[in-house]
Design a protein around this nucleic acid. Structure first.
Lengths: 339, 339
DNA sequence: ATTGGCACTCAAGATACCTGAGTGCTAAAC
DNA sequence: GTTTAGCACTCAGGTATCTTGAGTGCCAAT
């Protein structure tokens, strides 16, 4: 087993490296942290850490830098989550509590998280697998067009303009609306499609063309509701740390703009630490992200569907702060959306 | 006046510099463009151009680079807009014609524009100053909460969850909904607030607390509808050209993430070339953007409200392509949203 | 007005040298 | 066994010097 003091040395190295972004040497360690031993002793400890691949020397005879494995140990064993400051807590609470609209809440959250951590932040919309239909509205828009609106359990709204391909009378619209609501209200999204066959069949033959169109659009809306969606904020923070990313910053940015990739990335993680999970460097499956760390937490909405919120930054990041912030924002989101 | 051939030389310099990103010298010019004169002659022309501050030498005795003023002249006088290729036209048309939802159309447009130009693209939502209310929906959400939905002329939807602070009966909800619609349908957004006083007064005293709340939320929705909103895509393209930006890439990215700044930036411009307007380098008011060029066009929705769409990149960009693409996307957007 | 010729300039690359922070190891001290 | 002082060694990064070549500006000839 690795001796106690060596582990302390690792902690010190991680902290100093994060603070200074310079490889850290034995002398600096004794000076800055109250080790009651000489630099030579620290060097012995460092030799052990290097043996264990927890730290590495960028070139023979310069200071040491934590490896992914070193950060991992730091996060798992050493990182006492530093609670947010009171002003910070207060900011989150008052900032988020003002709004109840999902888009607004998530938009604010992701910007706030980005500010709190000085990292790029990401939030995923809850998937609505278990949600159900609250109501369907059909609103005339012009001579031949109506607006279909689907409202779900989770305050989520989807709309689509539908061209009926001919003029229609109010009564017909009313009938459509009534039938849709009778059939669908309360139905889980997963069952919507099958229920709609009944809807289609309830109309006279000459109306079929229109109803088929309506059905297909509603199915689309449901799919859109179930599909993944993501918000991002603070790309500039990532840019500012470009040098920590070993040159593939552009690739990272590109990957992040690709929703599919980003979704895959953050969904690899399952919560562990304080409800927060961390992937460090090469622990990420995707090569593009092998110099970045992803910190994500789960939050739940009232249908108990969970989604991710987190930050993405260079492996050389302030883990304490970031884990604390992600954890806090995830908790507040759950509180806000879960009632 | 500047002689004809000198102007041709400027065009050649701009083209070569855009293509090679290297300062371009007299010899290269004679070789690559069919000037029937010697390098020495070209050098005389270059001296004129330098005199006019249209080009500049980064260091004594290296090739020349266009100045902002040089690019300006190029754009104004020399740049024959190259029409999009047929495949490109087709791509735009089929890509955008599939969807009629505003969010979807704008989202797709901005991504497409970014791809077409290899630049960061931006699109502004139409402001709804002249739009009016199409309908108001009030949908029960839980024991004490309702969802207010405001639908406008321009297929734009805003929603907000409202806590009524107590249980309520269906009849009351129905009454609220009916009154709101009677009052507001067809009303321009600008007049909504005053019309709502009548709504408030039409209720018995004991209901007032609730109705006040409803009114204030609807006003909020209207404001949200009128406020500016922007979508951005392709930040990675900008990152890839970081070196062309003279080091302040991070600042640019930061400014762009700040909606207010971005709005100001693109609203400085008034259409001129083919309905497209260009701000080059220091022509932008904001110092941050003095190494970038902004190309924007206007598009209109059915209420004849116009909004901007465009790209942002380094001054050293392919003006022909970008102007053509922005112009095309703006036209298609107008076509799609204007009917 | 154009051109060949030529001296001149300067960024960028190559080469060499120096410095100092930091190491690993050994032998002595605790 | 652990700690420490001492010392030789390494090497990234800074500085200094040289070389090269693309490109210029200008002049005299066409």
């Amino acid at each position: 087993m690795i001796p106690e003091r060596s582990i302390e040395v690792l902690r010190a190295i991680v902290q100093d490296y994060i603070a200074t972004r310079e490889p850290v040497g034995s002398k600096a360690l004794v000076e800055r942290h109250g080790f009651e031993v000489s630099a030579a002793t620290i060097r012995n400890d460092m030799a052990i850490l290097e043996e264990e691949e927890l730290i590495v020397a960028p070139h023979t005879s310069s200071g040491r830098v934590p490896t992914d494995k070193g950060y991992r140990l730091f996060v798992d064993r050493l990182n006492q989550v530093k609670p947010l400051s009171n002003p910070e807590r207060h900011a989150i609470e008052s900032f988020l509590s003002e709004s109840s609209d999902l888009d607004e809440v998530l938009g604010k959250s992701v910007r706030m998280l980005s500010q709190l951590t000085n990292q790029m932040a990401v939030v995923q919309y809850p998937t609505l697998g278990r949600a159900s239909v609250r109501s369907v509205e059909v609103v005339p828009v012009s001579e031949t067009k109506v607006l279909l609106i689907l409202v779900t359990d989770a305050n989520r709204i989807q709309q689509h303009v539908l061209d009926l391909g001919g003029v229609f009378d109010q009564a017909f619209i009313g009938e459509v609306r009534a039938k849709l609501n009778t059939l669908l209200v309360g139905a889980p999204l997963t069952t919507v499609q099958e229920k709609l066959t009944a809807f289609e069949e309830s109309f006279a033959q000459e109306r079929r063309a229109v109803t088929v169109e309506v059905v297909s659009q509603i199915v689309n809306l449901v799919d859109a509701n179930r599909s993944e969606k993501i918000l991002v904020a603070g790309a500039a923070h990532l840019a500012r740390r470009e040098s920590d990313l070993g040159g593939n910053f552009t690739d990272v940015l590109e990957a992040i703009e690709e929703q599919v990739v980003l979704l895959k990335l953050i969904n690899e993680l399952q919560a562990d630490h304080n409800g927060v999970s961390v992937r460090i460097g090469r622990e990420n499956q995707l090569d593009t992200f092998n110099t970045t760390t992803v910190v994500v937490g789960d939050y739940q909405n009232q249908s108990a569907e969970s989604a991710k919120v987190g930050v993405i930054g260079p492996t050389r990041m302030d883990y304490s702060t970031n884990i604390a912030a992600v954890s806090a924002v995830a908790r507040y989101l759950t509180k806000l959306l879960g009632n």
